[in-house]
Design a protein around this nucleic acid. Structure first.
Length: 260
DNA sequence: CGCGTTGTTGAGTT
DNA sequence: GAACTCAACAACGC
């Protein structure tokens, strides 16, 4: 589930259903080998506190308060946050559970165990520790142009580097380049200032649009790549052919006719 | 059964 | 030495 818009949709679920309720317990779920979760001490720190605020930076999700500890959550490839009622039971693959007063609970689902949960002092402390760059929806145009325009590697890889720019992953980097007609292999240093400015605008417009749907892809316009990410598919913009290649070790989909 | 996977990391290379 | 590349990680679904 997880790039910036998907993380934002998950953050919203905490903000909507899990604030201002005293935490009675926090505990690991089933089959938690090889996944990073808070230990006894960290879990104990949460008890008796409430979450009163949430925050997101790139793909990182936070919940906490002005006076207590925070949780930091990274969804990995397949993670999600699910508020639920005690009567309904936790979802499958729940790896971490927070029990609030009353019946409300929060589950961290993570079927493939590439995500993690930490107890931290503040969002900023964790963002600094991980050395993530500016959030993709917060970064200024000037900084974006500088950071991406000086990247010597593939433009797609540059957009996905969280230390340059936090929040973009494989799907939305493809969508941005598809919109602009730029080949994912092109180098950042080959793009002029005008192209970089257009990229900044496209990035913001695309991420905002996905956030607005709460990452429900079926609500996105038909001519987006997201609906056609298949080898050999017909390009919804120009009728060209969608091709899968490898860029920076990841699958990249692009139209061989209008992206160059 | 083999392959691919919306993420990151660390070792190796330019 | 910074920037970059790539295989590895875990485990599920097709």
């Amino acid at each position: 589930m997880p790039e910036l818009p998907e993380a934002e949709a998950n953050r919203l679920r905490i903000a909507r259903d899990c604030l201002n309720r005293t935490i009675e317990a926090a505990k690991p779920g089933d089959d938690t080998d090889h996944i990073e979760l808070p230990g006894d001490n960290e879990r104990g720190r949460l008890v008796g506190h409430q979450f009163t605020q949430t925050h997101r930076h790139g793909k990182l999700i936070f919940a906490g308060s002005g006076t207590g500890p925070w949780i930091a959550v990274h969804l990995g490839m397949t993670g999600s946050l699910r508020p639920f009622e005690a009567d309904d039971g936790p979802p499958d693959y729940a790896k971490f559970l927070i029990l609030f007063e009353g019946e409300r609970r929060l589950a961290f689902r993570c079927p493939r165990k590439l995500g993690w949960v930490r107890v931290v002092d503040s969002p900023q402390a964790e963002i600094d520790r991980i050395e993530f760059g500016p959030d993709a929806l917060e970064i200024s145009r000037d900084v974006f142009v500088e950071v991406i325009g000086t990247s010597r590697g593939a433009i797609k890889s540059a957009l996905m580097q969280q230390k340059k720019l936090a929040g973009i992953g494989n799907l939305w980097s493809d969508e941005i380049l598809f919109r602009l007609g730029i080949d994912p292999q092109r180098k950042g240093t080959q793009l002029d200032e005008e192209q970089l400015g257009e990229m900044y605008d496209a990035m913001r417009n695309i991420l905002r649009a996905v956030v607005d749907t709460q990452a429900d892809y079926s609500k996105l316009p038909e001519d987006w790549l997201i609906h056609t990410r298949d080898e050999g598919a017909e390009c919804p913009q120009c009728g060209g052919k969608i091709t899968r290649t490898k860029v920076g070790g990841r699958s990249a989909f692009h139209c061989t006719r209008h992206q160059d």
